[in-house]
Amino acid sequence: MPFEPDTASVEQALEDVTLYNELARGGQKVVFLGESSKFGKIAVKLIKPDSGAAELRATREIEVAKSLADSHFPRLFESKKVTVCGVEVICIYEEFLEGTSLRSVLQEQVCLPGKETVMIGREISAALEILESSQVVHRDIKPENIYLAERGRVVLLDLGIARQLGVASLTDDNAIFGPLTPGYGAPEQIRNEKRAISPRTDIFALNVVMYECFSGANPFSGHGATPRDALMNTLNLSPESLETFGSSRELARVIARGMEKSPHRRFPSPTAFLRQLNLCPEANE
């Protein structure tokens, strides 16, 4: 049964928050903009897990988010279980970010100059360094999950399908695909090769995002490709060099290496990627 609570019912369940409006709704999750006397303006997330695994996944998301005290991630203030309309749900109070998603920017501008593409790469690889040190792989880096907040702050959102390395996987071993977004998910995610999932998986997606920023189209899912085409393209297609779109040779090479099909040929870590990115002429424009 879909979880579709109205604002009044939620407000009644959360006595310490005033709700303003609904920000997003999908599946078993609803997000409201609210105000708390303790935390100020906040995003209120309500998640109704539809299975034991989903509840465990939501709990892990909260644990991971709590451990990431850095400006590249939204701050998680509080989490608790509440009953809304007779249903027990997980409630998260999270920092409300003013700004816009990278997807909105790309919809408006189509592509970004080299300097801004590199800036996105630098900021998200800094976020990936933090995830790596926490043994977490995000697994869903895409423009929708990259938020350009106030004062140049770049924030990585949505740890919903993040994987904690060294902790038992919550996804089905026999599934044909692992959890991913077609066009951004790495080949090892598409093949559901769990033992090959690593920070290099996020490096792949970040480089796809950078390619899209600079060229104006996703190299695998752009130009009207269906999700199935995007998956096949990711496995089989070698994107045209970014130099064709006017980048420096150095940036084209860095991004091509970041998008290598086999993880072992990509950069060994976000730090190694960042080091090479900083050597590109676009980094010093």
């Binding site: 390395l165 060294g166 090769e193 033992r195 999932i197 086999s262 072992h264």
Partner: peptide
């Protein structure tokens, strides 16, 4: 060989 190396890289 690729997939073997990809997995081996993640051994602790």
């Amino acid at each position: 060989m690729d997939s073997l190396i990809d997995e081996a890289l993640n051994y602790p």
